[in-house]
């Protein structure tokens, strides 16, 4: 995500009507949902990000071939107690990113239960991406390469923040991977999901998640249905969250405008 790409996508963004894609992030508490969005939207990483209370909303524009896609992202709270609020955010979504933490096996189980719920309750055509986050913490990961010298220090900080709920590990600095890539990938394939491993911290794989989602979503369909009725929304009128009324084809305010990935 370079400045050039930003500028390019900006020019196009201003000239074309973007396709709005409603996306929801789900997953256990502290797996890095908000951090993933922050990386995608602002290309930032914030150590010790506050837990999301309720939900947060962010947008980001992307370019895919000749189209501009505007992701309208609901970032939900992960704690089980907020679970009942989630349907309001995923009901109308065309895409979902279900996040787990590769260093925490139980978070994959939670992710699976989210996938099940989505497949049962959400829009039947919803594109779901399973995303194992925090690969920067595991050195033997599939793409466990180091990208900067400061990683070592940052890693220690992150470990302090990510004390695990499971019995083993923690105090020592060798945080181990608890979810093998193959296992999660096999599950994703079986359940018909896109699959990624990411690091919100160093940015690895993050843009890819959204690019692949954009590729898989039937954009033409969304375009034609949004053209038809502005008020109804793509997912019908049953969803209580109506993102259709959000700014459309208009410059976004403030920070949300800075990013921009060239999908």
């Amino acid at each position: 995500m370079s400045q050039t790409n930003d500028a390019a996508s900006q020019v196009i963004a201003n000239n074309m009507k973007p396709v709005q894609v409603k996306l929801v992030l789900l997953g256990e508490a502290a797996v890095g949902k908000s951090s993933l969005v922050l990386r995608f939207v602002n290309d930032e990483f914030q150590e010790n990000k506050e837990p999301t209370i309720g939900a947060a909303f962010l947008t980001q524009k992307c370019r895919l071939e000749d189209k501009v896609i505007k992701f309208e992202i609901w970032d939900t709270a992960g704690q089980e107690r907020f679970h009942s609020l989630a349907p309001m955010y995923y009901r109308n979504a065309q895409a979902a990113v279900v996040v787990y933490d590769v260093t925490k096996a139980s978070s994959l189980e939670k992710a699976k239960s989210w996938v099940k719920e989505l497949q049962r309750q959400a829009n039947p055509n919803i594109v779901i991406a399973l995303t194992g986050n925090k690969v920067d913490l595991v050195s033997t990961g599939r793409k466990g390469r180091r990208t900067s010298e400061s990683d070592q220090d940052e890693e220690e900080e992150q470990e302090a923040m990510d004390l695990d709920e499971d019995e083993e590990d923690d105090e020592d600095y060798g945080i181990s991977r608890q979810v093998p890539t193959e296992e999660a990938s096999a599950y994703a394939q079986e359940a018909g999901l896109l699959f990624f491993e990411t690091s919100a911290k160093n940015g690895e794989g993050v843009a890819e998640v959204f690019t692949e989602i954009a590729k898989k979503i039937p954009l033409e369909h969304i375009l034609s249905s949004t053209r038809g009725s502005r008020a109804g929304g793509v997912g019908g009128s049953n969803g209580r969250v109506d993102l259709q009324n959000g700014a459309n084809g208009q410059r976004l305010g403030g920070q949300q405008d800075k990013g921009g990935c060239a999908c």
Binding site: A29, A30, E47, N48, K49, E50, P51, Q79, A160, M161, D162, L163, D164, E165
Partner: peptide, 13 residues
Amino acid sequence: EKQINRDMSRTFP
């Protein structure tokens, strides 16, 4: 405890 711990550095960071 673990969950609380996880949120400590995330409260008024």
